[in-house]
Amino acid sequence: MQPKMAIGNLFLGSKIASKIAPNGKKSYFLQAGPICLFLLAIASILSFTANLWVAQDPGYQDLISRLKPPFSKVGDLNYYFGTDQLGRDVFSRLIHGGKISFAVGLITATLAMIIGGALGLIAAYFRGWQEAIILRVVDIQTAFPFLIVAIAIVSIVGSGLTTIITTLVIWLWTPFARLAHAKALIVKESEFYKAAISSGRSGFGLVFQHIVPNVVGSMMVVWTFIVAQTIIAESSMSYLGLGVPLSTPTWGSMLSEGRNYLENAWWIALFPAFAIMLTVFCVNVFGDWLSDRIDPQTKKI
């Protein structure tokens, strides 16, 4: 068979074999990684600076110009994406709504990475009962539909940005713990690690100098995919009315309001739907690209 693929299989695992065709060409999507990162950066900057450049207040209700189609002009106001059932500007709400998606995505994934990574390292460093408990929890949580529990928790405790981020972190630390644990165990088998131990290193110094640098790359790859998952989870919860309070626009809540007006005002739901789809798509494409650069084997863990 083609030698190139065989070598790919031998050294780098299945992911490279699937990504590099036998003639050595990379698949088309991988090239788009940096472009996607650029687009995401632009989109998040536009969202976070929305107060500075979007003229319309996202919460301003103009009941006279309700359900106006895209590109309507009322007085000297331009409704590029139309207005919703309360006469609010869909364009403005869309840009402002991005704030929640991006903020929750970035903060949650980062916190989950720090907590999950730390627990994974503890499990791998001490082995023993710490490992048993942590891995057991990871197993149970991975198999269980935690979104259901998250919904229950939020409904009981009450919704809000902090509750959402906390519940999502409780849900999403497990992939990081699993990965950090697996990678750290590999490092512990290596010669340089044994050399470090025999030269008297231990504790934090050992972990931070020798294990962490070897784990961080793959953690970053998983981090991007978790950002995508978080954005989906947050918008799902907002869709169900369990997100941030309704006075703050989010893509999920816009979508759920638009669901009732699909018959006569498709634009209310369609624009946030595209926003969610394109954002998650870009994050995933970037994650794919990153995983091929940094760490081709990790994605499946």
């Binding site: 999507f29 995508a228 989906i232 918008s235 799902s236 869709y239 979508l255 638009g258 669901r259 699909l262 739901a269 369609l270 739907a273 969610i276 789809m277 998650v280 798509f281 995933n284 494409v285 794919d288």
Partner: peptide, 13 residues
């Protein structure tokens, strides 16, 4: 790849 990026409720819409 695109299909993987669309959450179920968005596809529903």
């Amino acid at each position: 790849m695109l299909g993987q990026s669309i959450p179920p409720f968005v596809i529903g819409i």
